[in-house]
Design a protein around this nucleic acid. Sequence first.
DNA 1: AAGGCCATACCGACTGGTTAGTATGTTGCC
DNA 2: GGCAACATACTAACCAGTCGGTATGGCCTT
Lengths: 198, 198
Amino acid sequence: MAHAPSSKSAAVAQRLLAEATRLFAERGFERTSVQEIVEAAGVTKGALYHYYGSKDDLLHEVYARVLRLQTERLQQIAGGEGTVGERLHRAAADVVLTSIENLDDTKIFFRSMHQLSPEKNKAVRADRRRYHEMFRSLIEEGQRDGTFRTGPRPDLVVDYFFGSVHHLGTWYREDGPLSAEQVAAEFADLLLYSLRRP
Amino acid sequence: MAHAPSSKSAAVAQRLLAEATRLFAERGFERTSVQEIVEAAGVTKGALYHYYGSKDDLLHEVYARVLRLQTERLQQIAGGEGTVGERLHRAAADVVLTSIENLDDTKIFFRSMHQLSPEKNKAVRADRRRYHEMFRSLIEEGQRDGTFRTGPRPDLVVDYFFGSVHHLGTWYREDGPLSAEQVAAEFADLLLYSLRRP
DNA sequence: AAGGCCATACCGACTGGTTAGTATGTTGCC
DNA sequence: GGCAACATACTAACCAGTCGGTATGGCCTT
């Protein structure tokens, strides 16, 4: 179990998490040794095991952080102003944007989730499912009120769209030709177009 | 380097590859030991290293196999009969179908590619890019002849769609409520709808 | 047809290196 | 003096790959 870094004075705990995130994204969980993490953070193992219960724990913390962030934002957008079409578009663009802004987390998420211990894996999946369900209910709402065509199953659309989002980490480059905003807008457009009524 | 299993009498080599595929998909590359692979195949390490140069080599062989298969099929469909809309729909549905039929390979692909040695990783990426380019040129063709709207960038559409395809491995279950054909049809529909002109 | 020769296919013990995690200090603040 | 925040040294386990060895069967030569 992780004691959540005790908020006060735990700059070391945060530095450890940040360096771990960077290294996990760069080399993957298994290829990153605890020794490398503590060296990158300028401390020793004692410090790491003081704040985190295990290497696994560290990985779990990465997930928890990004999930909290995205869930919060989706809640705000889904419950906000505008037609369901507008809200879905905004939500879709936002998740793309924040995924790119936290590209390291995105990479780790989909490469290394299965390395988590079964119980932690289960916990993460449950959180993730709740997130997807919020997204899905937006689609259902649009189908009910006639904004979207009723052909596609909402849950399949969610898996379809988030597949694309999760894979950003494999091809998006910060120094590439496309800005995060451009990708966000196009992905959201593609989603909305695929739901538009004939 | 792998000597490709010498075609004749190498049932052992094939069994090793099959068991490795299964185990890599189940536990991931790093968490699968060479010892486990050879035990599952009912041989010993000597046999494995007789046919394959390294554990890495084995992983590379998995990729090579599925890439060959999919490239072949896409070539046939892209160069076949029908309007560009029909061909793209067929190609999209087909890649979903074969991805589900070879779900173990799909899982490994997306989870473990970055574990390959840099050179092999590069080779696989190059193959993959050629494959994506074939797909992209179908979209470009449709945009040129007015079948598809010209808004979205073809390369982004490809990344968008294949994100969804690669992620099948994380959520699709054979014993789930959806047949592979259903998913294939819906995914292809979603793609075509998102390209349809207003 | 018999004997020699050699390649292929595999065995299994061993090695050298790495790794997560632990046990036991040490320091400095309240 | 006591506890939080670390450091240091260590261990026990694991693992990819190696290497010397054996069994089998085909082919060439005489």
